[in-house]
């Protein structure tokens, strides 16, 4: 009888061992070793199939791409003039700081590039990257793509790490609305990102930048997250809620950069 159930007993013992090890650091090491082995496969697929699928999608969306291109050219021209003005303002700011004897803020930022290996769960909006504690990563580090915040390191293992994207339900990041200067918490979810807990006295503008506020210390301040789209809070609520859209296409993330204050 035991021979007949041998396979089932072996599987049951493996599951039981895994369950016992789950809350311990050994499971973290085991998961680390899995992703070390899966890394070449994951990177191989990203460089092959990962390029083919968006290419096919782009061909099907050619009309949208042409319109978007035209909008981006106009926006780019507008931004260039803004950059020129900002450069002047920054120059004046530096001169004034020197005149007034302000100490310069010398916090430097370390940037670690990382490639996406895969995704450990289809339900969490998270990815696994090929850098870990051995590269200096710690839980809570900010992860950016194209200069925009896309997530935070949620589980740093020795050789790889889990990054929770800002669109995930569990993501919670302190942010500030750049024009109206209202602070709030950026949450992800199925309906998209939104900034919650903005005080009622703040006059939120549509299209203003949302950047990290630096509160909490781990995520550097000033990293762009997205732009406000519409206010979604109802009358009578004690805080305002505003929807936020990110310029990053989260389905086409490739290389990420982990930033940390030093």
């Amino acid at each position: 009888m035991i021979n007949k159930w041998k396979g089932a007993i072996v599987v049951f013992l493996i599951i039981l061992t895994g369950l016992i090890l789950s809350p311990t650091k050994y499971m973290k090491n085991i998961r680390n070793s899995f992703w070390v082995m899966a890394k070449p496969v994951g990177l191989g697929f990203r460089h092959s199939v990962g390029q083919a699928f968006p290419f096919v999608r782009q061909i099907l969306q050619i009309g949208y791409v042409v319109r978007q291109n035209s909008n981006l050219i106009s926006e780019n021209l507008g931004l260039q003039s803004q950059v020129a003005k900002m450069t002047e303002v920054q120059y004046e700011n530096e001169i004034l700081k020197k005149e007034l004897g302000f100490l310069k803020n010398t916090n430097s930022t370390k940037i670690v590039p990382a490639a996406i290996i895969g995704q450990s769960s289809g339900y969490l909006r998270s990815v696994v990257i090929d850098k870990g504690k051995k590269n200096g990563l710690t839980n809570g580090d900010a992860v950016i793509s194209q200069g925009v915040l896309v997530g935070t390191v949620s589980d740093a293992r020795d050789n790889n790490s889990e990054v929770t994207l800002v669109t995930d339900f569990n993501s919670l990041i302190p942010v500030v609305l750049q024009d109206s200067r209202g602070t709030g918490l950026l949450r992800g979810g199925l309906q998209g990102m939104m900034v919650d807990e903005v005080p009622l006295n703040i006059s939120i503008k549509k299209g203003e930048n949302v950047v990290t506020s630096g509160l909490g210390g781990q995520i550097p301040a000033g990293i762009l997250v997205g732009k406000t789209t519409e206010i979604i809070s109802k009358e009578g609520e004690i805080f305002q809620k505003v929807a936020v859209s990110s310029p990053v296409d989260f389905s086409r993330l490739e290389v990420l950069f982990v930033t940390k204050n030093e």
């Binding site: 599987v11 493996i14 599951i15 039981l16 895994g18 369950l19 090890l21 789950s22 499971m27 085991i30 998961r31 899995f34 992703w35 899966a38 895969g118 450990s120 769960s121 969490l124 998270s126 589980d155 889990e162």
Partner: peptide, 13 residues
């Protein structure tokens, strides 16, 4: 199933 348990964030098994 064991591979998904090994790599995934949920409890093993």
């Amino acid at each position: 199933g064991l591979i998904l348990d090994w790599a995934g964030p949920l409890f093993f098994g």
